[in-house]
Design a protein around this nucleic acid. Structure first.
Lengths: 323, 323
DNA sequence: TTGACTTACGTCAACGTTGACGCCATCGTT
DNA sequence: AACGATGGCGTCAACGTTGACGTAAGTCAA
């Protein structure tokens, strides 16, 4: 490459990175050769010396979570604009596995990581941040140097859902929550219960079950709620998959949705608009979340050691047919 | 690291890679220090000299395609076992964008790439393979040195779907196909038409429309088919999203599914079991596909220049409620 | 005792790039 | 004419690792 143009590698580097310190004629000749040979600078060599590999990591809990690919799409688009490529991995909700994933990312010298944390790993993640790695935690609220967090205001979302059920005349309401214990779950439950603090008189105390956050879990959850109290008329589910499971269970048990039983989901995955009746749910602006996540990550990469305030994005109740 | 143990870096390298040529005592002391310091070999430096970066690329058309994350999951698990980390990118179905993605992956010296090709890019991909990059093309059938291809036998799938409709007494059948033109689409259409070659007498000639491969596209497609022929009694859709769209359209036009109109989808995404009636569809064994893709990729990496035969996986008709 | 062989290291160079610095020609100023 | 400043390069070393090779001490057989 260099000797083909008759200049030193250093000059090629200068031209490619547009550092200045070369003549117009040299620039033209180098760029021609770059074009001809399809030359691409070797990011490994560059990263070795600049300590910037031009990569970011995205670590999720489970790639098949419908939540995830939308994030990846947004993050990739943003990352591409700053010339970074994206590593992709899942931690399976397991701290051990998450540690392995981070070791691997560290050895590849990623410039930063966006992570949906495995349960109970905030300490572990803080340690990586302390070690100098820019880190963005999604879906949790954490304050720590060199670390940012972005999340949705699901406490408010749950609150909106419950208030909506109450406002549309439901008075015997249950919540199907997730038994996977991370702090944000509790926030959703708290927002839900809070809505009952000034509920209309005659409103029954709300019921709660915790099950696996899957379609089948949703079915089981509704079953268990109905065993406790068969005259329930409103359900808030922890996510849309569970809401769909609950809906199917309700329908096959002979309840009409929404006439006998109103159901509100949470997440607005594409599916929720396709089942019948279409699911009333909490919409999350995921493109916004991914944009904010990568934006704050780039900020952390540029300004190491800073400590941005946690970002909590608003959510919106979308009323469709199931309530 | 090296000087802390009092040995040379070369010896550390020997121990870490278990090359032999060190005493048991040295091994112990080095591994202790590795543990203490949380030492991780720098893959950039290693890759620079070994020409193996320990990464593979996964390039999809669109990350939000439900097809995709399942693949990513399988590929990641396999890749992890061989100590590789996964780059992740989408080409948006655009050859230009795909070329950019490949430039980026090349500059990061990936060991190989698994790609869902953008339409019409087989030549482009063959060029990368010729340039020495091990490549696996998913969902198409290609033969070329240094390149493998894995796909589902959707020709047979479409054929099974049509035969199923005929066998259950349907005689006026339409197919909603995709207007995005890649070779495999044509295969699906061919398999579909082939089923009519020895159809029962009294079977009407099959109808075909091509629309966008989305839920809305499916709706439009059914509309157009019914304009042509309002007494259709069987539909095969190019994928499940389109089938769901067609089903919604049929129901809102007053057709009962399956009584008036039987619908068969193709893909078996999770959603298809959740709509009502549950969709009869062609099931694809995606975990198997991803396992085969990464297996053959590792083979290509180990045996550069070889030319494995295209792999075509069987598919299975799953009869549920929509037929 | 000698020489061949083995074990357990160390040394050196190289991978492709960039940071730091040096050098020469040219130019403008006095 | 002398001098400093500037533009346009090249040179050297370093990033952390590994391939190739060297070497000193120990082992073994003749």
């Amino acid at each position: 490459m260099a000797n083909r143009v008759g200049v030193s590698p250093r000059t090629v580097s200068r031209v490619v990175n547009d550092e200045g310190g070369f003549s117009e004629a040299t620039r033209t000749r180098v760029l021609e050769a770059v074009e001809d040979l399809g030359y691409q600078p070797n990011m490994l060599a560059r990263g070795l010396i600049t300590r910037r590999s031009g990569t970011v990591g995205l670590v999720g809990v489970d790639m098949t979570d419908p939540f995830f690919p939308a994030m990846a799409e947004g993050i990739q688009n943003e990352a591409r604009e700053t010339g970074r490529t994206m590593f992709f991995a899942s931690n399976d909700g397991d701290p051990q596995r998450q540690a392995e994933v981070f070791r691997s990312l560290l050895s590849h010298a990623v410039d930063g990581v966006i992570v949906f944390p495995a349960p109970g790993t905030v300490e572990q993640l803080a340690a990586y941040a302390r070690g100098g790695m820019p880190l963005v935690i999604v879906d949790d609220i954490v304050e720590f140097p060199n670390l940012a967090s972005v999340s949705f205001d699901l406490e408010d979302g749950a609150n909106q859902a419950a208030r909506h059920l109450l406002a549309t005349g439901r008075s015997r309401i249950g919540m199907i929550s997730s038994e996977v214990t991370v702090p944000r779950n509790r926030r959703r439950e708290r927002g839900f219960f809070q809505a009952f603090e000034n509920a209309p008189t005659g409103t029954a105390p709300p019921e709660l079950v915790r099950v696996q956050p899957t379609v089948t879990g949703g079915s089981n959850g509704l079953q268990r709620l109905l065993e406790r109290r068969s005259d329930l008329d409103g359900i808030f589910a922890f996510n849309d998959s569970m809401a769909v499971g609950a809906m199917r269970e309700a329908q096959s048990a002979g309840y009409r949705v929404p006439d006998d039983l109103a159901i509100v989901g949470c997440n607005d995955i594409e599916m929720s608009g396709l089942v019948s009746p279409r699911l009333t749910t909490i919409r999350l602006d995921r493109p916004r979340l991914s944009a904010e996540a990568i934006r704050v990550l780039h900020y952390l990469i540029e300004a190491p050691g800073s400590n941005p305030a946690p970002l909590v994005l608003p959510v919106q109740l979308v009323v469709r047919e199931s309530t």
